[in-house]
Amino acid sequence: MRYFLLILALTVVTIMGVAGKRGSLSRQPPIEIFPDMDRQPKLRPQEPNAFFADGKSSREHPAGTVAHAAPLMVNGQAVYPHEDAPVNTGKITGTTNFVETNPFPVTETLMARGQQRYQINCLPCHGPQADGNGITKKLGMGVVANLQEKRFVTMTDGEVFHTISNGKNLMGSYAANVTVPDRWAIVAYLRALQLSKLATLNDVPAEMQSKLKK
């Protein structure tokens, strides 16, 4: 009996010693104890796959093509992603001139969306006031445009949209991360940020002016 107890105790200690506690760090992938159908031979996004020459399971669009997608509704009109329309390009149809104003009606929902998207995508560099003092400025981003400068305040909405879509100089393209309607929402919000710095007392409704004077 003594030997039996000793062997049992030793086995328990060895198993606990080798296996450790729950939640301890492990560099090895989890063991799948009954692997039935856990991993099926189907394609999952962003996983390596030897079938394709470049080894990517997530396929990219062939160059120069646009996905056949549901149309955007702009002022009650359907616009498809492949169309040469101001919403898609930021340019007046058939020309290389940028459109002056936002093709979407500027509503409170658009503004709220723009604020949220600005804070996700632009804030790290351009900062909460769009003055180019984002957190990364202190940590090595040398050049960040101050969007409160006159050049950007007078810039057309279309050109700002074009910058978000295609990038410019040191700023990369945000086309993959920000959808077309969200880009226009950001443009609308950016305009509000610029106005907030430029506004004078006379821009404030009369009944609110007395409050601000104090």
């Binding site: 296996a19 729950r22 939640g23 492990s26 989890p30 799948e32």
Partner: peptide, 8 residues
């Protein structure tokens, strides 16, 4: 709880 948690 044992097999997955802690994978790093």
């Amino acid at each position: 709880k044992y097999s997955n948690v802690g994978y790093q």
